[in-house]
Amino acid sequence: MADEVILRVQDLQTHFFTRTGVVKAVDGISFELKRGETLGIVGESGSGKSMTAWSILGMVPHPGRIVGGSINYLGENLLEKSRGEMRDIRGSGICMVMQDPLTSLNPVFTVGDQLTETLRLEYNEPRRSLRDRAIRLLENVRIPAAEERLINFPHQMSGGMRQRVVGAISIARSPNLLIADEPTTSLDATIQLQYLRLLKDIQAQTGAAIIFITHDFGIVARMCDRVAVMYAGRIVEQSDVEDMFDHPAHPYTEALLESVPDLDTDVDMLPSIEGQPPSLDALPEGCSFAPRCPHTWDRCKDYPPEFTVAPGHVSRCWRAE
């Protein structure tokens, strides 16, 4: 069922309550994801991308909490689940690939131990059978000499190898939603390309939906079907990838795209976005991007609603009215 909606997020709000005020890390975002589809979430650091992922997983760190909205996974609201129910969903239905594999892998256990531990949650089989499954998983993520690698500790492997091991653990229980939080940041260009191909192969084999969190529009163009651009905790533009590249409707999206180097054009200095993102506990009135925007006018004193630019393409900018 290719059109089956795996995930529907509606008006999600995740706030942190600190001594200096309320930090609106995620401030009323909505999107949906279908089986086999890849959604890219793009934005500068601090825009709310990773906190969106942690909210979906039910792992918002203290002192934050989800204060509004819903997260419907296969028709069930995850915000109504108990801790035990969410623990069962994480890893089996929804899995996350971290930016740094060393934060995911236990340094005192071998790769084989960590893989078989995950597999044991899914398969009630003898250790030898689980070991064979672990070998096949490592082979699926293109790790050479997979059987020999089972006895390696994480520090004995390269960064690219560790990232592939994390990928193997992520797909061990056949999740139908994979959240990849900038998983290629620490990889060199060649390994990065191989890893992206690997994720596409895994998706083709399993039909999993993927949320790909990144700041790299090149990866978005290669990996994603749809893209959501986040700024200051909100989604300011959302559309399919081709329409976003051809017809960006929000000044922030335009600025991000202009910042991507063009190898066919000689320039003395790459374009950049002036200023800094606002502090999330002291957002400006009206449009959050207005202090950095070259197209401000009187209407920007009010925060814009979501305007439909084209079918499936929405933008929060008064110019799209």
Rank of each mutant, 00 (worst) to 15 (best):
I151Y: 03
G84Q: 13
S279K: 13
M98K: 13
F289V: 07
G160F: 00
Q276Y: 14
G69R: 00
E139V: 02
G84I: 13
E237M: 01
G68R: 06
V236I: 10
Q205M: 08
E254H: 07
S55C: 05
C317W: 06
F212G: 00
S30G: 00
T214H: 11
T14M: 01
T190Q: 08
P183L: 07
I41W: 00
Y252D: 01
R222V: 05
R162M: 02
G21E: 04
D243F: 04
R133V: 09
F16P: 13
M86L: 14
I273R: 15
R164W: 02
R292H: 13
N176R: 01
D262T: 14
P63G: 08
V236P: 04
I235N: 02
H215V: 08
I213E: 01
I191M: 05
M244V: 11
A282H: 12
I143E: 00
R149M: 02
A282T: 11
H215F: 02
N72T: 01
V267P: 15
P248R: 05
S50H: 04
R319C: 09
V97K: 15
L256C: 10
S129N: 15
R133I: 12
L257D: 08
L57T: 09
Y303F: 14
A204F: 09
S272N: 09
P107F: 04
V111K: 01
F245E: 10
L199I: 11
V227T: 04
E285G: 06
I169N: 02
P183A: 09
R173L: 12
H15R: 07
E148I: 05
S239P: 10
L270W: 09
P101E: 04
T214D: 01
S55Q: 05
A209G: 06
G91T: 13
A145C: 12
P154D: 02
A208F: 01
H215S: 03
H215P: 07
S104Q: 04
S170G: 12
L57P: 11
E321Y: 14
N72S: 08
K34I: 00
D298E: 11
G218A: 10
T116F: 08
S288I: 09
V260D: 14
R127V: 05
R234F: 11
L283K: 06
P61G: 03
I56H: 07
D268E: 08
V229W: 14
G40Y: 06
E242W: 15
A25G: 03
L177T: 00
F109S: 05
I94W: 14
C293V: 09
